[in-house]
Every structure is written in C-alpha cells, then in structure tokens.
C-alpha cells in the first residue's frame, strides 16, 4: 500500500469522524493532499470566533494516527475571504491543491 494511499485513508477517516461528532461543521478543506507526512485541515464552522487570520494548531502523530495534523477552524465568511486572498493561509500552505469535503460528500 503506498504512502499516499495510507494518508488518504487516514485523513478521510478523520474528516468523517469530525463530521459525525460536530453537527455544526459545514465543510472541511484538506490542503495539499499530496503531503504524505502531515494532514492540513481547514474546518469551516459558524461556531468558531472570527479571528481574521488562519490560526492553525499543531497536533503530533501518535500510534493511532501516524501523521502530524495541522488544523484551523475558520468561519464560512473567512473561507470566502481566503479564496479572495484577503486572508492569507499559514506559512507553506497554498490553494494550488486542495480537496473539499462536506457532510453529504464524505465517503470512506
């Protein structure tokens, strides 16, 4: 099984879990899915406070999930601002390659 296949399975399982456990979660953006060492997620929810910036937290890998995670919660309007380049992404993150997941489309 390739590294990329493993990280895809892990990330999508994680995203599904987040949708199942958080009824307010609207969308999850997986930034740079070709990364095989870490999973970078933007989680879009109206429940979070507007920060006007992408505050991405680091979570280390563990035995269950052997990939580092970097996760930021943003509000729906902040996602639109990111798409318009009005709010920059964290250092090293780009929108050149990303996947969008919604409650309806997530399939694992």
């Amino acid at each position: 099984m390739s590294q990329n296949h493993n990280v895809v399975a892990a990330a999508e399982s994680l995203i599904q879990e987040h949708f199942e456990q958080d009824p307010h979660l609207e969308k999850v953006i997986w930034i740079d899915p070709n990364q095989t060492k870490e999973i970078r997620l933007l989680e879009i929810t109206p429940e979070t406070f507007p920060a006007g910036a992408v505050l991405s937290f680091y979570f280390p890998p563990d035995e269950e999930l052997p990939y580092a995670m970097k996760i930021a919660e943003i509000r729906p309007e902040e996602w639109q601002q990111i798409l318009r380049n009005e709010i920059p992404l964290p250092d090293g993150w780009t929108l050149e390659n990303y996947k969008t997941y919604s409650r309806e489309t997530i399939t694992v």
């Binding site: 970078r40 429940e47 979070t48 406070f49 920060a51 006007g52 910036a53 992408v54 505050l55 991405s56 937290f57 680091y58 979570f59 563990d62 269950e64 999930l65 995670m69 970097k70 996760i71 930021a72 919660e73 920059p88 964290p90 250092d91 090293g92 993150w93």
Partner: peptide, 29 residues
Amino acid sequence: LVAGDTKLENLTGTHAAFVNFIRIICNNR
C-alpha cells in the same frame, strides 16, 4: 500555533488564541 505554521505576525498581532485552542484541543489524541 507557531508549530502549526501560523504566521508569526498573526501571533504577535493578536491576543485571541486561547478560545481557539480550547475549541480544538480535542483533536489531540
């Protein structure tokens, strides 16, 4: 946040970080 690639100017320019931290801490396995 600094470990999560958050831009340094966003760290020094705001005091709002702890609420986000508590909201998201459950992701720490």
